Deep mutational scan, measured.
Amino acid sequence: SRYQRVDEALPPNWEARIDSHGRIFYVDHVNRTTTWQRPTAPPAP
């Protein structure tokens, strides 16, 4: 859903941030990219 819980676990090396307008975006520290779409953790084997 559009309103996912912010405290749900993100994949490793990802961080949720809030911009100056109060919107949540996500930072990938490995690839040094950002996205508005919440990343999903790969399925557990």
Rank of each mutant, 00 (worst) to 15 (best):
S1D: 14
R2F: 01
R2I: 11
R2G: 12
R2T: 14
R2S: 11
Q4H: 06
Q4V: 03
R5G: 13
R5K: 15
R5P: 15
R5L: 10
R5I: 13
R5V: 13
V6H: 15
V6L: 13
V6T: 15
D7R: 04
D7A: 08
D7P: 12
D7F: 03
D7N: 09
E8D: 14
E8C: 15
A9C: 09
A9R: 11
L10C: 05
L10I: 07
P12K: 09
P12L: 05
N13S: 05
N13Y: 12
W14Y: 07
E15R: 03
E15H: 04
A16N: 01
A16P: 05
I18C: 09
I18Y: 15
D19R: 00
D19K: 00
S20T: 13
S20M: 14
S20Y: 07
H21C: 10
H21I: 03
H21T: 08
G22R: 04
G22D: 06
R23W: 04
I24P: 09
F25S: 07
F25G: 03
Y26V: 00
Y26E: 03
V27S: 04
V27T: 03
V27P: 06
V27I: 10
D28T: 00
D28M: 00
D28V: 00
H29A: 08
H29W: 03
V30D: 07
V30L: 09
V30P: 04
V30H: 08
V30I: 03
N31K: 11
R32K: 13
R32S: 12
R32D: 14
R32Q: 13
T33K: 08
T34K: 05
T34R: 03
T34V: 04
T34M: 06
T35M: 02
T35G: 02
T35S: 09
W36A: 07
W36C: 07
W36S: 09
W36P: 07
Q37H: 15
Q37G: 05
Q37A: 11
Q37L: 11
Q37I: 15
R38Q: 06
P39V: 00
P39C: 01
T40Q: 06
T40D: 12
A41V: 12
A41Q: 12
A41W: 09
P43E: 11
P43N: 11
P43W: 07
P43T: 13
P43Y: 04
P43K: 11
A44L: 08
A44T: 12
A44H: 06
A44V: 13
P45I: 10
P45L: 03
P45S: 13
